[in-house]
Design a protein around this nucleic acid. Structure first.
Lengths: 201, 201
DNA sequence: ACTCATGTCTGAGCCCACTCAGTTATTTGC
DNA sequence: GCAAATAACTGAGTGGGCTCAGACATGAGT
């Protein structure tokens, strides 16, 4: 008989366990085969739940991908933010934030692109979707902070510029469907656009 | 007995007629009900062809939307480009190009957003998709021309800036899923970002 | 005219994301 | 403990985009 569990009621614990199993199953299958080549049945089977149950935890297959990828993106943002602090040049610092995100996005090209699609065109009332938008907002805040650091831009302009930069990165990643296009190329493409925005030498 | 037909062979004429019927049917149904509330069956029925036939003319439902919307977009671009010529201020001229495109995109919000989705995430090997990308390229060229007009930017920078502006517009339109958000608001939002990019007063 | 070859059409059927009416588990009130 | 109430689960079923094996039309060769 263990001491007081972290979760109060049994129901809550069961729900959490199921969500964990779903997350693990979806994560593994998506990573292995790509989101398009995995059926919701497979995920349900691997998580050892009924098909219907799956959709109590994620309203669409897209939400399942958000569930899996959000964690990776948050992680990438954290790394980039830390890197940026050590870099004096503003453009370099901004790119230090973007780099890990692009890398993360290209680990599995199809999944990365579908994730972006889901973010922009998915149902904003779903919790995993809001979570994704929150990460984007955090990313823009981090960029704005770097921009404001230089003191060349007002706070409002820094926020606007950060928004533009996030748009540049977004379409930079979404645009290149070819899995052969390397991360480095995308980053360079984004960099040249950001450089112009910042009027960096 | 009419004189020599514009199309040489009977097969070619039949194919063209069918494509016309499909375009008309899809256009009317999409405009009336929105792309999500129209089935490919309905389109096939209205065009008076079999279901299978439909997919000989457009590989996916998304391609059908591209087929219908591309014409509207090309039209919007044409209007904007003409407007821009009469406007001396660079920022105003750029916005004159963007305005009709945003309007066109918001005629039916769902269709507009699905069109954008299809453009970025659709199959680039399909002919209607290339056509859409061509319109985007033309839009960017028109913007670049306006930017170069001022002489403040090199040709290369103008092209890059035009690309950024198209990204800003794209996410400006895609981002606001709420049909209540008015065209004017989106345009204002885009304008403030473009103003910063151009360092316009 | 009569093949044969080549291009076009077709709809029954497949696949798969998602639903919902019915079942089972958990909690609450007595 | 035992109902009643409530929450969670389930899988057969549904709808819709898309396919493909076979039917049909057209044009070319003779």
């Amino acid at each position: 008989m263990p001491a007081v569990s972290p979760q109060p009621t049994r129901r809550e614990r069961n729900k959490q366990q199921k969500l964990d199993r779903i997350t693990a199953a979806a994560g593994e299958l998506f990573a292995e085969h790509g989101v398009d080549d995995v059926t919701t049945q497979q995920i349900a089977d691997k998580a050892d739940i009924g098909t219907g149950t799956l959709f109590l935890y994620a309203k669409t297959k897209g939400e399942l991908l958000l569930l899996v990828q959000n964690a990776h993106y948050a992680e990438a943002l954290k790394r980039g933010r830390a890197d940026a602090e050590t870099i004096p040049d503003v453009l370099d610092a901004v790119m230090a934030i973007l780099q890990p995100i692009v890398e993360c996005n290209r680990v599995q090209v199809d999944n990365g692109r579908t994730y972006l699609k889901e973010m922009v065109f998915g149902d904003p009332t779903e919790p995993r979707h809001s979570e994704a938008l929150h990460i984007v907002a955090q990313t823009e805040e981090a960029i704005a902070a770097v921009l404001a650091r230089g003191g060349m831009l007002s706070a409002a302009d820094a926020a606007t510029a950060a928004h533009v930069i996030s748009a540049i990165m977004f379409l930079g990643m979404a645009g290149s469907a070819d899995p052969a296009s390397r991360v480095e190329d995308i980053v360079q493409d984004v960099r040249s656009q950001v450089r112009l925005l910042l009027r960096s030498p």
